[in-house]
Amino acid sequence: MPSDKPSKADRIAAANLMEEASEVFDNCISCGMCKSLCPVFKILKEERVSPRGKGIVLSDKVMDKILFECTMCKACEEKCPLNIKVCEAVMKGREAMVLKGRGLKSNEEMIENVRKCGNPFGDKDVKDPEKLYCC
């Protein structure tokens, strides 16, 4: 579902969120320990999806869809010797992307489906369309 052009207020809010997300990594020493428990890295085995990778992207205030490749489990934060709140930063990055109309298409479709049909699959043949259900 294509997003509307973001308003000026949304653009400012997105810029502020990216600034805040970037500041979260000011103390990062790039030791890479965050990778050790990251379930996304464990499966994909690519540095780009590691918490350290997301930190580099967010430090540069770059909006990239890798920010959506995170389970928000905070395992990286458990391992981080400097207690960097990676997930908080990733969430801010996602918010900024959505405000700028750069959220994931699949997420927007899912939200649209929930609004229209009460379920994320767009299934109209449900017994009680007022009731929200999921998998």
Binding site: I29, S30, C31, G32, E47, R48, S50, R52, G53, I56, V57, D60, V62, D64, I66
Partner: peptide, 15 residues
Amino acid sequence: LNKNLIKIYESDASR
């Protein structure tokens, strides 16, 4: 990978 993501591989723990 795009340029922004290549940057992730342009440093290590030495910073």
